[in-house]
């Protein structure tokens, strides 16, 4: 006991403190942007160089992995004489349609729960059930029902996006400020007035917040639809190239797909910022 006290006193002796040494706030120097960019480019160049050299020396099996020079040559063919633009347009279109309708239907469904607590309680288990379902597992069925064309890809993209939108819009409905609702009713508002003038604008930030998630999901849905059965599209190109061992074409299509994905993500981010400016103040 006494020993413990004397120890704790010792710990507060100035000598003990300086022996232990105080830490300084950790700080990391920030590199200028050009330095970071050149390091990134350097890493990329190294990977490509090792890949190419490795393939030429036979260290990397070019049959399975292909090589940068072959990929470049294939890319040129894909974009000049190949089906690049048809495929990009096809995938782009089904993604956009799926994104648009999935977000629209999902948000409308989520907002509709505001109208009746009973209806929300009845429907909610079904929504959660559909949410937990691996929707991509339904893809073969969707293709059977909707056919090989654009509609089956759009349907899968909608299936992936609709639930996220529903749940988010419903979360927005649940977070509505009760006092504002009371204010509207005290002014003599009808339910429709409360819905259009309060519920919808108050939930818009929630709806906007899922746009970026949904564009990625819609693209995934379209690609999987094309994997199952399709005549066009980047997903179909990847599947076809893989099955015929045209590995270079697989890489080309994947690269184009990433570029498309990034472009759409950036576009949706702009859309989000623009919408937020109009909605959130």
């Amino acid at each position: 006991m006494i020993h413990a006290i004397s120890q704790s006193i010792a710990r507060f002796q100035p000598g003990a403190a300086s022996r232990r040494g105080y830490r300084k706030l950790p700080s990391t120097p920030v590199w200028p942007a050009p330095v970071i960019l050149s390091i990134q480019i350097g890493i990329l160049v190294c990977i490509v160089a090792f890949w190419e050299i490795g393939a030429r020396l036979g260290v990397i099996d070019a049959f399975f992995w292909s090589q940068p020079s072959a990929i470049w040559a294939t890319a040129k063919i894909f974009f000049t004489t190949g089906s690049a633009f048809t495929d990009i347009a096809f995938t782009f279109r089904s993604t956009l349609l799926g994104f648009f309708f999935g977000t629209l239907i999902g948000s409308a469904l989520g907002l509709s729960f505001w109208w009746s607590k009973n209806y929300a309680a009845v429907v909610q288990p079904f929504i959660i059930c559909f949410e937990s379902l691996p929707k991509l597992a339904l893809a073969p069925l969707v293709v059977l029902v909707f056919g090989m064309g654009l509609s089956s890809k759009v349907a899968i993209a909608i299936a992936l996006t609709v639930v996220v939108s529903t749940l988010t819009a419903y979360a927005g409905v649940k977070a509505l400020d009760r006092d504002s609702e009371r204010l509207f009713y005290s002014l003599g508002a009808s339910r429709w007035q409360v819905f259009t003038k309060f519920v919808v604008p108050a939930c818009l930030p929630w709806i906007i917040s899922v746009l970026r998630i949904n564009i990625g999901l819609a693209l995934t849905g379209s690609i999987v639809g094309e994997f199952i059965s399709s005549q066009y599209g980047l997903g179909r190109t990847i599947l076809y190239a893989g099955q015929t061992y045209e590995i270079a074409l697989v890489w080309v299509a994947v690269a184009v797909l990433s570029a498309l994905s990034i472009a759409m993500y950036v576009a949706v981010s702009w859309l989000e910022t623009w919408l937020r400016k109009g909605v959130v103040h």
Binding site: S186, L187, G188
Partner: peptide
């Protein structure tokens, strides 16, 4: 409702 003004 709507018969009086109500400020919360």
């Amino acid at each position: 409702i709507g018969r009086v003004g109500y400020m919360l």
